[in-house]
Nucleic acid binder design. Structure first.
Lengths: 214, 214
DNA sequence: CTCATTGGGGAGTGCCACTATCCAAGCACC
DNA sequence: GGTGCTTGGATAGTGGCACTCCCCAATGAG
């Protein structure tokens, strides 16, 4: 198919597709001649993935490029590619290690992993971006005067572990071997907004149950 | 305290505080005379809240202003204020109701609420931003070819309801009556990144358990 | 009296995700 | 073979946003 058709079927404006091509988010089409290129179903699928990551997942264009680079890197085994792709995702400000709240947050986070028995996560503490995000969030909470009950944190963590089990079960049963990495990235990028929406809906429901609408 | 001290104690640059003052995110200090204003602990607290919302919660400045407007609106009863503040939060693109995927997503979402017995949420379907976010996320997933098992969705929703119960318990036990609304907003804004971080950590842990590091 | 400091305000900056315009090559139809 | 529309590629521009710079006049410590 031509650019125009790719645009129509994906709903993405032509000018935007050109921009994605320039930025390396989309492989160039097969050149038929100097002035014609052809795109196929794979391009359409990839374009939809890119759009979903940018518009629903709010991932910056440069980050999407990095993530897809890992997804497409055939030189690595699958689990490594998956890890690399997921680690390229977050856009966390580096915690300021000088900050006293950050130091306290480290302790809380480490103790949490200990209590959970997440030994694998403990091994990755120094390098995992997720761990850094956790520390940043905990530090922000404490800076505002909210000290967390470790039991409460533990409860939240167990809930999210439940979600992670669901995620991985889903990945295992969906997509071909080749698509697994892509499915995993999607799972992280698109399931997150869905969870957030469910979370807020649940808050509204529970709040209405407790206090009514008054 | 003066601007300089406010800046130092909050870690926010003076120029940025001035910007927040101009944008109405922070009440002006008490004018001592034409060229001197004094700020107090309430200003510091509010400034930290604003910073956390913008930097950790990634809320746009204009949205923060709207949310705080509701938080401070003494003319409304607390539950209404809380609802208004939380509803001002999301920044969801309106779903395109013409889109076939959006239509299908509506059905899936409605059926989910039905199965859960979330009758309050059902009543709010037409106006709740959270419901719209859910529809957008589900539509994006289906557009990429992932049809959701209703059982799986249900499982995710039950998990997030568990989180909502923890949230509200926390709000009930923290802060004075006057601070409840602020605590609720914080709960939504700051707990979200924390949950996301826990979710990804849990994915890493579970993935390492299943597949090792290879 | 002097001069660095203060708060206010307007204008500028840098980043980012597009988007408008231009250009020359192709193709469709007459 | 000419006419005019379409195509893909490149360049430059746009608009939004979160700051950030700079200037000013008033202040107040030494």
């Amino acid at each position: 198919m031509r650019l125009a058709e790719l645009s129509e079927r994906s709903g993405v404006p032509i000018a935007t597709i050109k921009y994605y091509l320039r930025e390396g988010l989309l492989a160039p089409g097969r050149q038929l001649n100097a002035r014609t290129a052809e795109y196929d179903e794979d391009h359409l699928r990839r374009l939809r993935l890119v759009r979903a990551m940018i518009q629903v997942g709010r991932i910056p264009v440069a980050t999407v490029r990095d993530v897809l680079g890992h997804v497409d890197d055939d030189s690595l085994p699958r689990t490594i590619r998956m890890g690399a792709a997921l680690w390229a995702l977050p856009q966390v400000p580096e915690p300021d290690e000088e900050d006293e709240y950050v130091g306290a947050a480290h302790q809380v986070a480490d103790q949490l992993l200990e209590s959970l028995g997440w030994s694998n996560a403990q091994a990755l503490v120094t390098i995992s971006p997720s761990y850094r995000s956790l520390v940043v969030a905990l530090a922000a909470l404490r800076r505002l005067g909210y000290d967390w009950d470790p039991q409460l944190l533990l409860a939240y963590a167990r809930l999210m572990h439940g979600a992670a089990v669901l995620d991985l079960d889903f990945v295992e049963t969906h997509g071909s071997e080749a698509e697994r990495v892509e499915t995993a990235v999607l799972g992280t990028v698109l399931v997150q907004p869905m969870l957030q929406a469910l979370h807020r809906l649940a808050q509204e429901e529970e709040s209405a149950r407790r206090y009514g609408f008054e």
